[in-house]
Nucleic acid binder design. Structure first.
Lengths: 197, 197
DNA sequence: TGAAAAAATGAGCAAACTCTCATATTTTGT
DNA sequence: ACAAAATATGAGAGTTTGCTCATTTTTTCA
């Protein structure tokens, strides 16, 4: 762990570089040399802060998880879910989109499949960071719905949101907008029917 | 291209090995040496049939595309779509699941994101192999619906089906069953509302 | 049957990658 | 100002991987 300001800046620069590269080239093509070069530092410095390549991504995921938790705590509530579940869905979709845009590399990390077993635990936790609290909110808002159904619905909602936004990210602005709208429509209809209005 | 029976068997064995490895370790960890070893042949033979690693996957994708087209031609019809769009959705979901189970590596190839630019064209074509014909069937079954809405709906249906089945594939049998059922529910509701009964 | 064509083999080259370490530079505390 | 601690550097060691090629084995066919 860095103690001087100088090294703390490098630490942050390395993470920023990793995030940007992740966004641009994806996980498979991410290399430690490229990260160091983009962070304007030497490969040696990278390995002074991180024991290996996975650790860099793991630290990024840790930050991403915090952002997600902050968003859920700030924007989602039992009252909102109970009042209008469609509006609840809208907030979830818009919130995830905002996070994706603000944090380079987020969707790359969030979506990658079996990337040579890398940070797999962390990625799964990132998903549970969303599914679990959302399910708990629904539990409080709709106590009569069976727990199993609630969990399944939130799993569907989370997975669907994740992938459609990931796909949308690769398209032009116009396509992104309509995909988001269709997604809200679909999830709203689904939750209305499976959980309640 | 192989001319003797012996080499044609090797050609097929290499493709089978690649498909199994793709299923087991994913694209990122796929190596030509591993493919050759699993096919019980030498690395030299692999490069006698395929100019490079991408070509092996490309050939696999070519076969997958044919399977998808065959399924659509055999199982989907304008009549079915016009009669009951929910049943139409059920057939699509079950059909894709059947293909996924029958063809090792299918979901691995179908779902991978930005795998170092590999066979990207082919992967996109695979998606259009589904979206385009489905949209055409809907066009015939529901001629009053605007073309743009139809295309968007089918894109959403295809993407959602793809990812949820990909996720389901990593879970136990019980989870797969309920995810498929929830998926049918959601897509059925969505299409009923956006296209018609 | 024998020579030419086709197919098979695997050692190893070249390139790319992760990560180490001896050395140099900067910061800190006194 | 000076020594010790912290930080920075990049050449290169050690692997892995895609792919080649000289050589051997099998098949074809007159």
């Amino acid at each position: 762990m860095p103690r001087q300001k100088r090294s703390q800046k490098r630490f942050a620069a390395i993470l920023d570089a990793a995030a940007e590269l992740l966004e641009q080239v994806g996980y498979a093509a991410l290399t430690t040399n490229a990260i160091a070069a983009r962070a304007d530092t030497s490969i040696g410095s990278l390995y002074q802060f991180f024991p290996n390549k996975q650790a860099v991504v793991a630290e990024l995921v840790r930050e991403f998880r915090q952002e997600v938790q902050a968003f859920i705590g700030a924007s989602l509530s039992v009252e909102l879910a109970a009042r209008d579940i469609r509006e609840f869905v809208d907030v979830v979709v818009d919130g995830m989109e905002e996070i994706r845009v603000r944090l380079p590399g987020f969707s790359a990390v969030f979506s990658f499949r079996r990337s040579a077993g890398v940070a797999d635990d962390q990625r799964i936790q990132l998903e549970y960071d969303i599914i679990r609290p959302l399910s708990e909110i629904l539990a409080a808002a709709y106590p009569d719905v069976a727990a199993a159904r609630r969990d399944r619905c939130m799993r569907i909602v989370a997975e669907t949101t994740k992938v459609l936004m990931g796909r949308a990210a690769m398209e032009d602005e116009e396509t992104q907008v309509w995909m988001r709208e269709e997604l809200k429509q679909m999830l709203g209809l689904y939750l209305s029917q499976r959980i309640g209005t």
